[in-house]
Design a binder for these strands. Sequence first.
DNA 1: CGAAGGTTTGAGAAAGTTCAAAGCTGGTGG
DNA 2: CCACCAGCTTTGAACTTTCTCAAACCTTCG
Lengths: 253, 253
Amino acid sequence: MKVRSHSLANFTAPDLTAARVSPHDPGQVLLQNACAVLRMRRRQRLTLGSDGAEMFCLVRSGLLLLAVSASVKRRTILSILFPGDIFRTACAPPLPGIALMAATTTEVARLPWRTVEDLTSSNPLIRDFVARASAALLARQMLHGAIVGALSGEERAASFLVDVALRTGYTSARSVVFEMSMNRPDIADYLALNADTLSRIMSSFRARGVFASADNRRAIVSDWNRLCTLTPIAGALQELARRTRPQLPCDKA
Amino acid sequence: MKVRSHSLANFTAPDLTAARVSPHDPGQVLLQNACAVLRMRRRQRLTLGSDGAEMFCLVRSGLLLLAVSASVKRRTILSILFPGDIFRTACAPPLPGIALMAATTTEVARLPWRTVEDLTSSNPLIRDFVARASAALLARQMLHGAIVGALSGEERAASFLVDVALRTGYTSARSVVFEMSMNRPDIADYLALNADTLSRIMSSFRARGVFASADNRRAIVSDWNRLCTLTPIAGALQELARRTRPQLPCDKA
DNA sequence: CGAAGGTTTGAGAAAGTTCAAAGCTGGTGG
DNA sequence: CCACCAGCTTTGAACTTTCTCAAACCTTCG
C-alpha cells in the first residue's frame, strides 16, 4: 500500500510558535486579565457536571472540545472552542457525561459566572465582548449544524479544514499552514462521519493535492482558493472567523 | 393504498386556544412589555440581511423557523424558535438567503439590539433573562446538532415530536396533545432527513400507535413514556424545556 | 522492545435518497 | 357552491452514500 506517498518530507516546516492568536478586543483583554488561567494537557477534561456554581471560561490558546459519549450512541463532539471563544456551563446541553476536553495543550481562563455577570454590568466593553462572543458562538453552532445536516462527507471535511485554517492557521511562503491538533476520530465525531470514511476523504484530498502534510499533524494548503471551492460555505466561515480575527491567513496567501 | 387508516376521525379534538404558553420569568415580562409586537402570518419572512441596525426579537406565540436555502445545496432549517425564545441578528450565521419564517401565525416582539443592551445594563432582571435565554438557545442548538449528527432517522423524528410536545403541547384526558404547525418538508429540513423518509417514519409511528392524528395537524400521544423510549435524549429535552416552562405537559399525563 | 492506540484500505451491509406515481387538501375563482 | 389547481403527503423500487467489520500498518510512549 502506498501510504503517505503524497507527503512533503522535504518541505521546510515553518515555526508555528508565532501563530498564537493575540486578542484585539479591548473587552476581551480586560476580561481575561480578571481570570485565573488553567493550563490543560492533551485529553485532560473539565467536567461540566452540576458540581457547584456555574463557571465561565475563555480559551486563550489551544483547542477545547465539547464532547459527549454516554447519552448518544456514538460519541459526539458538539463544538470546538478556538482561542478567543467563551463558554459558560449553562450553554452545555444537559446530557450525561458531557465534558470539555483539551485537544492539545490548552490555556483556559476561568471565572465564576456570577463574577462575569458583575463585570458585564460594570463595564460596557466587557459586556459588549461577552455579547458579541456569545452571538458568534451561536452563529458558528448553527453553521456547524448546517454543515452536518446539508453537506456531503467531502464538503464537511473541506469545511472543517477551511475553518481550522481560518482560526488557527497562518501564512508561510504563499501557503496557508495550520496545525491539525485533532485526530481522526475526534474530527469524525465532530463532522458526524465515520473515522474510516473521513480517512478515505482525507486520503483523496491528499492524492488530489488539496493539501499536503508531512506527518498528519500539520497541513499545508498551497492553493487556498481551490480548497474553498470544495465547500459551498467558505464565504460564511471566512466572515465568521473575521469577527474574532481581523487578519486572516488567507488574506496574504 | 391504505392511507390514513390509522387516523382517529372520531376523536374529540380538544381546544388548543388555552395552550398558549404564558411567560413566568419577570425579566421576560419586563422586556416584552418594552417591545413592539409584530404579527406574522404563515410563511411570512423576516429578512436578516444587513439592512441597517441589528435587531432583537422575542417569540410570544407561534413558531419561527430560521431557514436558509441558497448557500447550502438542500434547504435547511437551522433552528426553531418557540414562544419565549429570543434571537438577535448577530446570532444568525452569515449565509446568503437566510431568514426567519413563521411556521404558523406568530407574534414576535421586536426591539433594536442597542435598546436591549441598554435595558440589560439598567435592569438585572432583564439582563439575567437575556443571558439565561441566550444560554438555553445555544444549549438547544448543540443538542440539535447531536440529534442530527448521532441519531438515526427514527430517533430524530421521535426527538422532534418530544421537543415540540414539551414546548407547545398540553395535557388532555391523560394524553399529551400538540399542534404540528410545521409541514413535512420543514420538519425534514430541520432533521436533515428526506421528506419521503420522514413520511415513512411518521407512517410507521402511526401504525405502531406511537401517536395518533386526525388530520396531520394535531398529534395525540397517549403513551408518553413509550414515545420517550424512542429517543435516547428525552431526558435532556425535558430538562431544557423546563428552563422556559416549569410545568410540562408530560408531568400530568 | 512491546503494547496500545491511531490510520489506512477493502469488501459487504445498512440506512437513507431519489425518482416516479398516485392520493389528498385547501384555497380560488367562476 | 362547486370544480379545479397547486402543493402536500404517501408509498414503492432502484440507487448512493456512508457505515461496519476486519486486517494490516504506523507511531508513540513507557
